[in-house]
Design a protein around this nucleic acid. Sequence first.
RNA 1: GGCGACGUGGCCGAGUGGCUUAGGCAAUGGUCUGCAAAACCAUGUACACCGGUUCGACUCCGGUCGUCGCCUCCA
Length: 503
Amino acid sequence: MSIKVYNTLDRKKEEFIPRDPGKVGMYVCGPTVYNYIHVGNARTYLSFDIIYRYLKYRGYDVTYVRNLTDIDDKIIIKAKEERTSPEEIAERYTREFWEDAKNMGLAEPTIQPKATNHIKEMIEIIEALIEKGLAYIVDGDVYFEVTKFAGYGKLAHRTLDEMRAGERVEIDPRKHHPMDFALWKSAKPGEPAWDSPWGKGRPGWHIECTAMSLRYLGIDFDIHGGGRDLLFPHHENEIAQTEGYTSKRFAKYWLHGGLVNIGGEKMAKSLGNIILVRDLLKEHNANVLRLLALGTHYRSPIDFSQEKLKEAEAAYERLLNVRRRIEHVLESPTVTRWPEKVEEMNRLKRVIEETKEKFIESMDDDFNSAAGLANLFELVKEINTFIEVYGEQVTMHAKDLLEEADGVLLELSGAVGLNLTLPKAEDVAKKLPEDIYQLASEVLGIAIDGKRKDQLLDDILERRNRARKEKDWGMADRIRDRLSAMGIEIEDTPLGSRWKLKI
RNA sequence: GGCGACGUGGCCGAGUGGCUUAGGCAAUGGUCUGCAAAACCAUGUACACCGGUUCGACUCCGGUCGUCGCCUCCA
């Protein structure tokens, strides 16, 4: 069985065969660091994070390059607005991006090169392009001449004529063709500039990706990815300049992620309808965001809304609940039972195996994470049913099986970066609200000095259990309601009560 | 205007030429529970519209309508 990927270049799914067996080179266009990233940006990075992790899970040695565009018009403009230097802006937002990336649970790429560290290579490439007659110089600017590159438009599947049809932008009369794009821009006074054979200036937007991908992944690497909106002109131009330069194929598989819409419109900085990742993460667990991404195929658009977030949150809760339940059952005393529930055990055993197979099958099919997630939930249901028939009183064999099921749950969710780790009791305790002291003194009526929050919580739960035994429902419910108001939820099970913090 | 994608049950969202109970969320009824929560069981004329191909189409083809994206900075 092999992985299939949808290649934008051919507009069809193809078998994934890397250039070097067992190894994958993957380049994803990273952020221009002039602002905090928003949910739309995040979606792309999440999509490729999932792909990166999954390829590694499937045994590939992946070199994942995600660049940082740290020189650009927008950075210069932002610096002017804030009366600071472009370097300072780039540095600051690089830091902030890394912060957000970490909080989102993104795996660190193998390499995160910065454009400004590769100016030399860019100049070399531009010089070669001029020499080859693919680029020309005008007043210190250098343009790529699209009509000289036969394959121009092959990624976007558009001819130059078709592109001219809808021109809405004023044409720079110095360009030979309206679609010609800048490889090098001459600097105005006060702008960041590097020396070049054409005078002081800075690179155009696209050339950096050529320089950095060639440097770190070489010619004809495996996967080039980015958001759909980069397909044209950015990626098209990358292809033109790179293939013009090397006379070889640039990259084999082009993957494009779907965008995030909000209220039926694309989420974009220019439209002013963005939600910052850092704001979202104040309210929601990073895994909820990932679950949202996993629930839709990476190529499809997602219409972002609070309702969807809530749904994802509920789904995440379901995943954590089953793990919590397994843990609870595993920690409880083992019972003996004869005869053993052989039929149920065989069924769960089979589902565990099938889940793994089906999950891999789903993900192998162009990273169909929505289907993979469904497989995961099928296992969740089976586990719940299994525990249900045992009435939570499980045998040693059943425990082994549940442990196995739990392992598969963790393995598969981990393969796509979903973290189902249950917080440790002592860590959770730290997050307990101060109100717990108030409640403790109210219902325990004893000295509470010096006790840790989790100890107090245990005492309170014990008090509640006593109340329940004495059928003092008023007290029992009062404690539950008060805890619930603090974000602590209580579940009474045949094995006793357990509690959790709301996510 | 050009190019492209999409239109699935209350919502979201996979999928296939003839049993997928896809899955998630929500709803209703039931089981369990003192109640609740969690969980399980059961339910809901699903595949935009109109033609065509086919023994058979939600799935293939053509057309219509609608939504969205790209053609300009954009993940």
